[in-house]
Amino acid sequence: MVVPPHQYLKPVGSLLKVPLDKSNIINNCSVTSSIIKTVEKSQPTLGPLDNIETSKMQQWIEYSIVYAANIDCSQDSHTILKELDDTLSITTYLIASRPTIADVLLYHVLVNILASLGNSDKESYMNVCRWFDNIQQNKLFRQSNKLVNFTINYLSRIANIKVD
């Protein structure tokens, strides 16, 4: 499912207390740079701390908008989720050791896809789910979205342990 830009830009914009709509973006040349610019002004803790983080953030935001938001078949979604799963297997957040605007944006891009996953799919993207679950617990990040349920994971794991 292709995610229309307003669906992820609106919540990110309201988190940053700036409407991120088309006019703003055109003024600032690109979505990526305008997101990073506004985050530095209004929510510095979610922004980059140094140049390395800035460029990582640019890459992740670009990735979210170009790839993750344009998933139009299940093959794509598998590729993207697998990629993310591999990345997140060694880190807790996308960048650094704290949630950043890139995490929030990717959360809003993926929220519908994650919500539509079945339990067995959730199991196979365990690292994505862990990351997602952690991000969605923050009300500021989640905003009007519903919590996606991941609790079945616990149950199935308890079942596994018992089988062992």
Partner: peptide, 9 residues
Amino acid sequence: EDKSYVSGW
């Protein structure tokens, strides 16, 4: 496996 922290978020 499915938690980022030992306790809470």
